[in-house]
Design a protein around this nucleic acid. Sequence first.
DNA 1: TGTTAGCACTCACTCGGAACGAGTGCTAAA
DNA 2: TTTAGCACTCGTTCCGAGTGAGTGCTAACA
Lengths: 349, 349
Amino acid sequence: MDVLTPRQKLILAAIVEDYIRSAEPVGSRTLSKHQDFQLSPATIRNEMADLEELGYLDQPHTSAGRVPSQKGYRYYVDHLATRKDIDQATLRVLRDVFQQRMNEVERVIQQTATVLSQLTQYASIALGPMIHQQHIRHIQLVPLGGCSAVAILVTDTGHVENRHVTLPEDIPPGEVVRMVNLLNAKLVGTSLAHLRSHLYQEIATEMAHTLERYEDAISVLDQLSETVVNGPAQVYVGGVTNMLGQPEFRDVEKVRPVLELLESADWRRALDVVPLTGPGVQVRIGQENPVENLQDCTVVSATYMVAGVPVGSIGVIGPTRMNYARVMRILEYTAGALTRLMTERLTGS
Amino acid sequence: MDVLTPRQKLILAAIVEDYIRSAEPVGSRTLSKHQDFQLSPATIRNEMADLEELGYLDQPHTSAGRVPSQKGYRYYVDHLATRKDIDQATLRVLRDVFQQRMNEVERVIQQTATVLSQLTQYASIALGPMIHQQHIRHIQLVPLGGCSAVAILVTDTGHVENRHVTLPEDIPPGEVVRMVNLLNAKLVGTSLAHLRSHLYQEIATEMAHTLERYEDAISVLDQLSETVVNGPAQVYVGGVTNMLGQPEFRDVEKVRPVLELLESADWRRALDVVPLTGPGVQVRIGQENPVENLQDCTVVSATYMVAGVPVGSIGVIGPTRMNYARVMRILEYTAGALTRLMTERLTGS
DNA sequence: TGTTAGCACTCACTCGGAACGAGTGCTAAA
DNA sequence: TTTAGCACTCGTTCCGAGTGAGTGCTAACA
């Protein structure tokens, strides 16, 4: 695979970088003026013809310059993108975000999406932490009058999940208090992923003895755990209007599928866009994306973790002509910062 | 003002309705085929010339048909739009939304935004209930370990607001419990708008006697009430991609300001778009909008209430060539349904 | 053998003029 | 007051020439 000569690599990298900057097909004359190599346009043309034959370059039409193909971008990302340090100004913006006193996890994630799109001038997506992995710290039931009440569940990372539940009609207030106490005693420390199974396997039988109306408690908890399973992770999207500024999306019909996806993204679909993987930065170029609406886009994503477990991911969505090096650096840093922040919070600030 | 002859009104209404449907300037020939009046194109041309002179119509260029001016739309909305009943299919969709068992207020509002944009094919915005008006039902403090804790506040409509707070370092657990009990005893029933003032004027002095470390309680509550004041109302936006389907926004540069506004809308800015007014439907046509980015749009909005108090609003954003009659009917119905839903919840379901 | 200069060729893009046609305003007749 | 007729306007579309950036190929050169 890696059969390119050093000079071909140099030329491919120059074409990719020039095209990322200008969004115009790169001609041989332009490249020959590049300071890095002193070659005539003709020589470069020969090399470009070879690179095109190998599939790394495309030619929109015979009398135009060359454009990197999907394969060309992939090669650039895998072998050529230089990993310079993140620039100081960018670093400062990022540091500011994470040094702010932002206690609510959701707000941090949302801010992350915003700042990612500001820094990169692309669209961004941030997936809030999957709370499956988290553990119950506290359960509370607040009656609202009538049969309705709010059930509140606090996890050990401080995430608060709440849901309205319907209480049985004639349950006395004292019983509610007892129920809550028992639930706390039995369930604090349980992982949310196991809430449901614990509920039935271990607690239910014991409750039957201790609590008069244990089916009621079960039903309430069942309603709550349904919320946890179905709607835990928030999806935040930022900078969709940045897409409108990209020349490849000048045409409304080109942007529309992308915006439609971002608009309708629930967390399940979002996971297809920014997958939960291990550490490191993922790059999906064009058709490498499993989501159809993003076949003309590149998605760069990274995963953040709590205590070594991947819980959420962030990503940047732009045209395939993307500033890969910069975006990858920024995402790497941001995911790291999020991981640190969330882990600190867990172990006690 | 209302000096139009009956025939002029008929023609103006026909032009507005035809233009709403087709998005193309309406010619005299087209109108003469309209079944409602048997007039030759020439006659209609005369009337149109008069209507243009009066400012109700615009002419893109001499050899094109007429287009309603902003004044024309305004007249149409005020005097001509027929208030037929809402059609059955639409009504069914709306009923389904509100008959669903959706307990969480936020989710109802979000669903409302989604369904509004689906039904109208325009963009929609829904402003969650201002919780200033609501009253405290319950306060809870859940320690997370170290000095951090989650403060949770439940209102009488079941809204849950939570925020991380920092506890003083060496506070004993028993004191936290006493503090929470006292806060509940003193503050339940207080309107959130008065939380801060109550806190200082009435409670603080009394607390000083009862509670050893009352400044700590104050500081915690202060942190919480800041959240209540600064970030209460959620803004939900739906169907922004619908804007891309409208011919007047074919050009990317036209949509961009609108999308930018919708993307960045916090609840303060959202209030400029969909104002909190009394009952009834508001229509702001083109430059009538106080927000600059919406000067080419029409915003139709309505307010929903809890127990007679306006707490939130919903709106539809589209081109000035909007199906006013239909959108107004839908918004009227939806706001009414929301009001009923929220009030029922308050008085006990 | 690799590099370069020269040259013919391709082809998207721009610009200007002609043809077209939807729609108007005006005038005169019904 | 309404209508038919007609000249006129003006945006839109189509076409062809001109332009220029860029290529591929060939032959000469190091």
